[in-house]
């Protein structure tokens, strides 16, 4: 597939970019103590780490990637070639997605073995959660890049989504401890249904509502990208 040529180039650039390496490879590891302190149990740790990987390695990393390539006029150049628009975005997302999937698998195995987590009873919900999470945060990253002028500004423009999801989607504490009204609003955040689906891999949590919320976010994401994504730098 032609888009993988862009993915291979992006992977080389990823290894040459210290900031991206730190954000996607080291930062989730630094959060292990915080998450362990919050809850020593294995499943919440796996779920929480996966959530962080989606936020940092997929969302934040891709906002900066899309902005950097746009400002370097790389996206503009790719657009006069043979690739279609979705292929360009897919190719540019590949390394971040591959790194995120690798990290998630690694964390799950390490945490699972060290804390003695049972094998998930309903693994397909895990798969749906991770796949849906990757897709939705790649789309949201592309949409956010449209409102980000420079790579440095990505730290600011990605903050609302990062803070809302990190504190509002139940990464540190289950939403069930909050009042019902607040909890049901927070369940509409894009990361919440992903975490619900991951937990549902091990326990009999609700799945229909998270699947619907996740689907709505993917549809919104596609709409936002088609409507606002910029291929040229702002002038």
């Amino acid at each position: 597939m032609k888009a993988t040529a862009v993915g291979q180039a992006e992977l080389k650039l990823f290894w040459r970019n210290r900031t991206a390496l730190f954000n996607s490879l080291l930062l989730p590891l630094l959060l292990v103590p915080a998450l362990m302190a919050a809850d020593a149990d294995g499943v919440p740790l796996i779920v929480g780490l996966t959530g962080f990987v989606l936020l940092m390695a997929v969302y934040y990393n891709l906002v900066t990637t899309f902005v950097a390539r746009r400002e370097e006029l790389v996206l503009k150049r790719l657009r006069v070639g043979e690739l279609t628009d979705p292929e360009i975005l897919f190719g540019a997302s590949l390394p971040s997605v591959v790194v995120a999937l690798g990290q998630t698998a690694l964390f799950a195995v390490v945490v699972g073995v060290t804390t003695g987590v049972a094998l998930p009873a309903r693994p397909w919900f895990l798969v749906a959660g991770v796949a849906g999470g990757v897709i939705v945060f790649a789309l949201l990253a592309a949409a956010s890049s449209a409102f980000t002028r420079t790579v440095e500004m990505a730290q600011v423009t990605s903050l609302p989504m990062l803070v809302a999801c990190a504190f509002g989607a139940g990464l540190f504490f289950p939403l069930s401890v909050l009042p019902d009204g607040v909890a049901s609003v927070l369940r509409l955040l894009p990361l919440s249904p992903v975490l619900d689906l991951l937990r549902a891999g091990w326990s009999d949590g609700p799945v229909l509502r998270p699947l619907i919320v996740l689907t709505v976010w993917i549809v919104l994401g596609i709409y936002a990208v088609r409507r606002w994504f910029r291929w040229d730098p702002r002038r």
Partner: peptide
Amino acid sequence: LQEGGFPPDLTVTEA
């Protein structure tokens, strides 16, 4: 293009 871009950290061959 009048202004086309390449990722600055790729080599000529890689680009």
